[in-house]
Write a protein that binds this DNA or RNA. Sequence first.
DNA 1: TCAAAAGTGTTTCCAATACACCCATGA
DNA 2: TCATGGGTGTATTGGAAACACTTTTGA
Lengths: 262, 262
Amino acid sequence: MTDEKNSLSFEKELDRFLPGISVDCVILGYNEGILHTLVLKWKNLDVWSLPGGFVFKNESIDNAAYRVLNQRTGLENVFLKQFETFGGMNRVWNASSKNQHMMQVLMDQMHFDNQHKVKNWFQQRFISVGYFALLNMEDAKPIADFLSEECTWKRVDELPELLLDHSEMIHKVLQHLRNQINYLPIGKELLPKKFTMMDLQSIHEAILQKSLDRGNFQRKILSLKFLKRHEKLMLGAQNKAPYLYSFNEKVYMKSLQKGLGA
Amino acid sequence: MTDEKNSLSFEKELDRFLPGISVDCVILGYNEGILHTLVLKWKNLDVWSLPGGFVFKNESIDNAAYRVLNQRTGLENVFLKQFETFGGMNRVWNASSKNQHMMQVLMDQMHFDNQHKVKNWFQQRFISVGYFALLNMEDAKPIADFLSEECTWKRVDELPELLLDHSEMIHKVLQHLRNQINYLPIGKELLPKKFTMMDLQSIHEAILQKSLDRGNFQRKILSLKFLKRHEKLMLGAQNKAPYLYSFNEKVYMKSLQKGLGA
DNA sequence: TCAAAAGTGTTTCCAATACACCCATGA
DNA sequence: TCATGGGTGTATTGGAAACACTTTTGA
């Protein structure tokens, strides 16, 4: 089985990883007014977690995070940024019966040559470096890893309970996004090439959790001169058709350096 | 010698540390218009570095950073915050002749039972979690560690070349301070209990690297209502004596949550 | 009475906000 | 021609910025 192959190759890779260090990725996508994040469901367990992984001895932590992102989405050249490192003592898979059960189910269905070694690996204390990614949901094809039966988008406002401190990580990222919304390439990363002004405004509203004035938003964005206006989007709705826009990336990036202004 | 004792107890402690993880602290103080940071000079070497340390297997990384801060300053209850984790491949003490020399000098003057073990420890690849602290320079008594001959304040604009990526760390912290100046308890942490308005303004100017309008600064700060006005400070200068102020911490913290405004 | 620096007042300007008005679209 | 939502215009407001004026202090 591919499961067996994956198990064995993972087991072999263990020696190539730095011990005690992991990376976790909050991968954010946007669709129809709602922010989503990519989560994994562990095989035969009612346990969800963020995509994560370990750091090869000869790669940077940035690279490790990028590798995880790439493996779960198939995408390259995605916006990815470190946000915080989690190193509390609460992160250990301690000997609670729930964790024991998880570990047992995990071991039973995998085919490791040396179960003890793999078990010890997972029960180490990990210090995890948290990253977040922004991407267009349409582009990504979620791919589960060999420990998971499902890799899927979930609305950030309807997340299941997550492993360890993964919920806290998402919370922190959303907080960070709110604080940094004027300095991050939110629109460029989360939207397709062409989009309407309302699309962009909706993203801002989703992040800030409040509604913005349509006219003022449009004026402020247009005044920054980083949007190119294209043809109108005819949807057959009985109202005025909105223009499509795309980013002039040079001007956009320069605007972001100064911030889009409160 | 205490050197010998320190060497041996450090050597023993090695087994209690997580391998491959370190913390480094950018400890900032303020004095007479200039920001300073605490740096260490390695014994008999022309090498300076930030105060740093390792993480015990049974403590959080926050705690490890706090321990370092406490050991180098003698202070407790200091503002300390994680800012970024450094995990590039450029962080390894590679086999350059300069590093070889450093290691040799280090080993020669210490008294390790098992030089090989200690040497290997330092030559590991480390992933370092960066913290910064804000404190009143008057309070701290810099204390060197057993590897250092000197622990002292240096102006951040006149720093010597630093070990590894420590210069980058300081740079990043100063950048962070500029971005977050309106959300950090800069004044409370860097100044003594009582201070003049000009003291507070000077800190802001030092961080932002630009001069601010005296009148406007005073008005903005006073409008936020978090300062208590006390008696005047009579210095014997032939000019109007400034009032002394102190923080109403409750109101101050509440103001910081919203930000002091652009 | 003078210089220097602190405290306060005044004016201007810009950007955020609220909201009104007209326009395009397809039923 | 009507309802709907997109695009643009306008008036108001509050805070930032520039700078002028007054007060206090010791020489």
